[in-house]
């Protein structure tokens, strides 16, 4: 112990249990939160905001220029671009969100169980995780769409499985570190149930790291799903989706009309960058704390 305690008479201000959400995020962290909140808000209320039908177009007005009626112009089928971007936020966000939630829950539960039981169970989990690691997420997703048909459900399910090892590996090493701490031994000696120790003690102590990793995963999942939609295996037309719009806009690029791909791509980049920066800040913060 290198720190000298000033003695027990020192006045210690009462501190309530804090989640510490706001500490140490910095400007970039807050900007990222702002971007992500905007995108999520768009995903929730976007379809309500749209005054036009995102799927109804006027073929005669294909590649229509920006106008009072169509602020960002129209796509090849004469559909309103702004409406499609706003409405597309929902499909663009809901897929990655499902992937993150599923892989985080699955990965964390596996990690806690592996760290708690140890022995052959831990070894088995580690081997399975290694095996799944060998498959790139996109490859698995393409395989799943080939088997179960193109569309979001198959892609989301495949990516959820592909993303689980990342969460499991990070959460397991953090959980193992906690598992070895004397406070866990003290709880066991008391006779507190293992499940209770995992949920009430280990989980809160690895929470920040899990959250940080989930945030980063969200960005990667969004890219992967947008990529799948781009090649036509994800969200199916005519549903508006950012990834699909990048693909649909390709034809326009050749006709000197890059707006559709550009706008949709910019939204994807901004969202992914925000998720990455925020995840990075959260990781740094969780490492900075004992």
């Amino acid at each position: 112990m290198t720190t000298l305690t000033a003695g027990e008479v020192e006045v210690t201000p009462p501190r309530r249990r804090t989640w510490g959400w706001t500490r140490g995020l910095g400007v970039s962290g807050w900007l990222s939160i702002g971007v992500l909140v905007l995108v999520l808000l768009l995903a929730v209320v976007g379809p309500l905001l749209a005054s036009q039908d995102p799927n109804e177009g006027n073929l005669a007005q294909g590649f229509g220029a920006p106008s009072v009626e169509h602020w960002l112009g129209q796509d090849a089928n004469g559909r309103d671009l702004l409406t499609r971007l706003v409405v597309g936020a929902r499909t663009a966000v809901i897929g990655p969100l499902l992937v993150v939630v599923a892989s985080t829950i699955l990965g964390t539960v596996l990690a806690l169980a592996a760290a708690w039981f140890g022995g052959w169970f831990d070894t088995a989990v580690a081997r399975v995780v290694d095996a799944v690691f060998a498959f790139p997420g996109l490859l698995l997703a393409i395989l799943a769409t080939a088997l179960f048909g193109a569309g979001l459900p198959a892609a989301v399910a495949a990516l959820s499985i592909a993303y689980t090892p990342y969460m499991a590996r990070i959460a397991r090493s953090a959980a193992l570190r906690e598992r070895g701490m004397p406070y866990i031994a003290a709880l066991r000696v008391q006779g507190i149930h293992g499940l209770s120790i995992c949920v009430r003690h280990i989980l809160p102590n690895i929470r920040t790291l899990v959250l940080a990793n989930a945030t980063i995963s969200f960005g990667f999942a969004l890219i992967d799903l947008a990529g799948l939609s781009f090649i036509g295996l994800g969200v199916q037309p005519p549903t508006a989706d950012w990834g699909a719009m990048v693909g649909e806009g390709l034809a326009g690029i050749l006709q000197r009309y890059p707006q559709e791909s550009f706008y949709a791509g910019a939204l994807i980049v901004a969202t992914v960058a925000a998720a990455n920066v925020l995840g990075d800040r959260l990781t740094t913060r969780s490492e900075g704390r004992s």
Binding site: M1, P182, Y183, A185, L187, G191, H201, P204, N205
Partner: peptide, 22 residues
Amino acid sequence: WRERGRRIQIVFQDPYTSLDRH
């Protein structure tokens, strides 16, 4: 554990790691 714990308990060396910080 509970039954054993009612007979014998332990206080560990390091007061910084023997309590859950949350």
